[in-house]
Write a protein that binds this DNA or RNA. Structure first.
Lengths: 233, 233
DNA sequence: CAATAAATATGAGATAAATCAATATTTTTT
DNA sequence: AAAAAATATTGATTTATCTCATATTTATTG
């Protein structure tokens, strides 16, 4: 058998924690951030950031589950899923481009902190430890998206579905059995497949006893096999 | 007609200049960089950076044309093309990951400067203007890759080929008529298609008088139409 | 310059996944 | 609790693209 998946970057859609980047700020700086931060609650399905609109804020997700996606017609492209305690819109804030490069929408009820972009840029210029942290996050993010890019362009349908199932189980819900907050359509968007194809593959996996599916409830029965399918395409 | 390509991010594979990030360094810092930089010449087709290997240096392409790609079996995924005066491996140097996330190989004879990664990290931590510049480059790069991600997952074969033709003409060779230094296979890798499909589509474009092809020589005859094909899919 | 290798081109058939249409199930509204 | 709407499922058909086989052209080498 050939080693198909040489890409070691995580093909999963979530990232590591981002909270600690604020820890390198001085007390004064923390105060500045706090003074220029707005906290907002969003309902399920709401748009947090709209592609092309003015990116006046850096958005930090305190609680919830958010998708970051490029808007397209007829289909969007989901770049990543963001869980609690992560920065959502960071790459939008570079000089020369002050609009959001992508949209972000909630999957579930969520709470976000909106930090003024100018303040953020100032901190980067003043506190190089902070800048260094931000660079780390950006780079992690890049690795993430590369992995996803690879999965969506090089893996076949079964591999992609296996991939997303493992991701949901291991990184989002952190249990083998979970109640999915995403619709089949969301899974289709995430895998770059049609909803029908996703459903068919879920059915196949079920018949092969790799998973148990009952509506929104999903249980991973055979991790090993799914991992094999995920990495071999 | 529907507006298919809402994504305004550049789907082309090259980026803006990177040289000026070094301009914000002090004379002392410039000297440090110089003292820790190695200049190396590469022949056509040589590997500059190998995915998974120790990323001890940040690589700056002084002269040449390089592809950055994820290695996969049976096919690689080209993330971007890098022309002269650009940083090649930047996202590799974040803390916690000291290996190259991707490989880089030359399309033509090239010259690169290898700057010690530790020095680079030090500069980021010391000079926040430099850090700010680097963040800009990283973000630009991200926008770039997102555009490419969209093109390769949402556009059909014709759109992708049109895309790459426009990219080569406008951003790499900067003329309507150019002698291609890439093989059909390279074009296949860039578009995520099979070489046969690329060739077939080039032939169609030729028959429709959109381009003129004779072996390695390509001339763009109808920019407008190609742009339409590129954005609608 | 012939001989060989490599790259490019072309056609026929195979295939993965999309689309379309119909039905079933779940969720929401009244 | 019933009706409506949204979501999920299934099957049949179509289609874009790949694969494989085979020419042809171009480049390389003795």
């Amino acid at each position: 058998m050939i080693e198909r998946n040489i890409v070691k970057a995580p093909s999963c859609v979530v990232e590591n924690h981002h909270l600690d980047c604020f820890e390198v700020l001085t007390d004064d700086e923390k105060q500045i951030v706090e003074n220029h931060t707005l906290e907002i609650k969003y309902k399920k399905g709401e748009i947090i950031a709209k592609q092309g609109s003015f990116a006046s804020h850096v958005i930090f997700l305190k609680e919830g589950l958010v998708k970051v996606f490029l808007e397209g017609n007829p289909k969007d492209l989901i770049l990543k899923i963001i869980p609690s305690n992560h920065l959502i819109t960071l790459s939008s804030i570079y000089e020369g481009n002050t609009t959001f490069l992508y949209s972000a929408a909630t999957y579930v009820e969520s709470t976000a902190s909106l930090i003024e972009a100018d303040i953020f840029k100032q901190l980067i210029r003043k506190n190089s430890n902070f800048a260094s942290k931000i660079i780390n996050i950006l780079n992690e993010n890049t690795a993430q998206v590369y992995g996803r890019f690879y999965a969506l362009t090089r893996k076949q349908a079964h591999g992609r579905v296996a991939d997303i199932l493992l991701c949901l189980s291991q990184r989002i819900y952190k249990t083998k059995q979970f109640s999915l907050s995403l619709s089949r359509n969301d899974l289709a968007d995430l895998t770059g497949l049609s909803p029908e194809s996703v459903i068919r593959i879920l059915k196949e996996f079920k018949e092969e006893k790799l998973i148990e599916v009952k509506g929104k409830s999903i249980e991973i029965l055979n991790n090993k096999s799914l991992e094999k399918i995920s990495s071999f395409g």
